[in-house]
Computed example of a mutant assay.
Amino acid sequence: MSPPPLPIAPDLLKAVRESCLEAGEIAVDLFRPGEKTAARTWSKSGGSPVTEADIGVDTFLRIRLSVLLPEAAWLSEETVDDALRLSRRFVWVVDPIDGTRAYMSGSPDWAVCVALLDEGVPILGVVHAPACDATYQALRGGGAQRNSAAISATTTTSLAGSRIAGPKPMLDALARSETFEQADKIPSLALRLTRIADGTIDAGLISADARDWDLAAADLILQEAGGLLSGGSGEAVVYNRETPVHGMLVASGSGLAEPLISALQRMRDGQPQRS
């Protein structure tokens, strides 16, 4: 028997959106368009960068979201993982600044991301990109919006002429067997997915090692816009596992999913390249 729906979902989405807008103001205060951030920066274990803005946004959202839904567990890039989340129905999944390197360098392509999982399935998502003047949101079954206007992924079914974003090595490998347009780099994984959701691009590739917080909110927005995120062989994306790390992923409008996955499979199988 499936769990009952969350009764306050529309009001909760509104409150989460407002929280993300406020969180964005914290980050914008130290953001310098086209210039190095004014925030203090350092490296985490493993070498990935973090700034005082990441920590400030994370702290703010943990306090705010915990009040909105106290029974929900917490999973965030900037918080020590707590195994309690594995036994909870609801889990907040947060990336305080997705695209920290972009933020640090003055690029506008970064976002505050919040998702709510229900038994591991995203049911609410907000991706707020203040430097791009874009706020994406979705509620499961309620469609997806950008700045309160409905959005939808493209309906193209052919790789030829499609616009695809992703790591250059992956795009170059795909280009040896397929014809398509390489879109400009989008450093934030969440924004890569939401720009598929709003039709700015047709598809995106994501290399292995993405985490739940990079994906969950934008995944729901993409689904509600008629798109699909899956593993490189078409397998479903599973959230809130013990280790919230993913392999290679592919995202697109629903009509391009099968052609793109088939092309990647041919590429991996080493089938003849086009002349």
Rank of each mutant, 00 (worst) to 15 (best):
Y239P: 10
V127C: 05
A203M: 05
A102C: 08
R163S: 07
A217M: 06
A160R: 09
A83V: 13
L139P: 07
A210C: 02
A263G: 13
V237F: 06
W110M: 10
A149Y: 01
R241M: 08
L69H: 14
T100S: 07
W213H: 12
G143M: 00
L189K: 11
M248C: 03
S230V: 10
A144Y: 04
L215D: 00
A225E: 07
L264F: 10
M170S: 14
T154Y: 06
L68Q: 12
T100W: 05
T59I: 12
R163L: 15
T156S: 11
Q182N: 12
I97S: 03
S76E: 14
A111G: 08
V114L: 06
P130G: 01
L229E: 04
V114S: 07
S19T: 08
V250P: 04
A183M: 06
M104W: 06
L205D: 03
M1F: 10
R88I: 09
P70Y: 15
S158P: 02
F180K: 07
I55N: 01
V121N: 13
I8Y: 13
D133W: 04
S162F: 12
V57T: 08
A216Q: 02
G143A: 00
A150M: 08
N240T: 10
L117P: 14
D172F: 14
G234F: 02
A15V: 15
R176K: 13
P49K: 01
P272H: 02
P5M: 02
R40I: 09
V237K: 05
